[in-house]
């Protein structure tokens, strides 16, 4: 196994002490080390938000782009060089709010990459407004009388949009989370790891103790990860008991498998340009 410290970036995380995102970062570093993927073969793309600062804290190639737009950039990087291990990261506002359109289509496109969402059910970087996953009736700075809207269900959404590996972790369960990430990275296809990553500063409702009382591991109940309907049923389990683990996984040809230009396995960046073939194309227009 490679050393976890090889994956530690040069910048120190600027998250609040106790932030769930530390656990996510540690788990990701552990997963990469266990898989022995060299840092220069790893491409991490994020959006904007507290959690989206992650690429700077990891030793790898990083892209810290626009709010909600990590997935298109990650898709482009993977399609340009599909030898890379591509990981997109961000928060719930980034991925399930402003970027949810990209999320839906990236699920169905099934590009081989991993999407880690640090879901704290709040907008943290803008200091505490309701997010798409804030539970109904929760008071936030933007909903002083409680949210009116129903919370979005990322696991169910990913399942119905065609994601081929759908998991949820808890940053209070680091080792378990690292295993989920390993599974996601190893999985060929689009993998979602939604992570309960408590915001200790702005979310006083969904706290570490709140989750600890409720979460249970699907594998402890011998959950059948090949059963789509069961996975979907579990996705809606919320309340006294909340499942974490792999809800569903399936092998389906990836975008790269289906795209003839990539079938040879040689990444596009390494393929010759075949410039002389231009003449053959021109023949069609004489």
């Amino acid at each position: 196994m490679a050393q976890v410290k090889e994956y530690i970036g040069k910048i120190k995380p600027d998250w609040c002490p106790g932030c769930g995102d530390f656990g996510v970062l540690n788990s990701l570093q552990r997963a990469l080390a266990e898989l022995e993927i060299p840092p220069h073969q790893v491409q991490v793309v994020s959006g904007i938000g507290c959690s989206s600062n992650l690429p700077g804290f990891l030793n790898a190639y990083g892209f810290h782009g626009l709010h909600g737009r990590s997935l298109p950039v990650a898709t482009g990087a993977k399609l340009g060089n599909h030898a890379l291990t591509v990981i997109a990261t961000g928060g719930d506002g980034d991925g399930y709010g402003i970027g949810v359109g990209h999320f839906v289509h990236t699920c169905r496109r099934n590009v081989d990459m991993t999407y880690i969402v640090m879901d704290n059910q709040i907008y943290g970087l803008t200091t505490g407004q309701a997010s798409p996953t804030t539970e109904k009736d929760i008071r936030t700075k933007s909903t002083p009388e409680g949210t009116i809207e129903l919370a979005l269900n990322p696991v169910a959404l990913a399942l119905t949009c065609g994601a081929t590996y759908v998991a949820r972790g808890f940053s209070g369960e680091n080792l378990h989370l690292a295993q989920l990430m390993k599974g996601a990275i190893e999985h060929k296809g689009f993998a979602l790891v939604d992570v309960f990553s408590p915001c200790v500063t702005y979310n006083k409702h969904n706290t570490y103790p709140w989750f600890r009382e409720r979460v249970y591991k699907l594998e402890d109940e011998r959950h059948d990860t090949s059963d789509f309907r069961l996975g979907l049923e579990k996705a809606f389990e919320w309340g006294a008991r909340i499942p974490i683990g792999v809800f569903y996984k399936v092998e389906r040809p990836t975008y790269e498998d289906e795209e003839p230009a990539l079938r040879s396995g040689t990444p596009l960046v390494k393929q010759p340009l075949h410039r002389n073939d231009l003449a053959a194309i021109m023949e069609d227009f004489i």
């Binding site: 491409q43 793309v45 892209f63 782009g65 626009l66 737009r69 997935l71 298109p72 950039v73 990650a74 898709t75 482009g76 990087a77 993977k78 399609l79 340009g80 060089n81 890379l84 359109g101 990209h102 289509h105 596009l268 960046v269």
Partner: peptide, 15 residues
């Protein structure tokens, strides 16, 4: 937005 995002991602990757 996604179209130009893919372009930037691919360009970053060297293509």
């Amino acid at each position: 937005i996604s179209a130009v995002g893919v372009v930037l991602g691919a360009s970053y990757a060297g293509k």
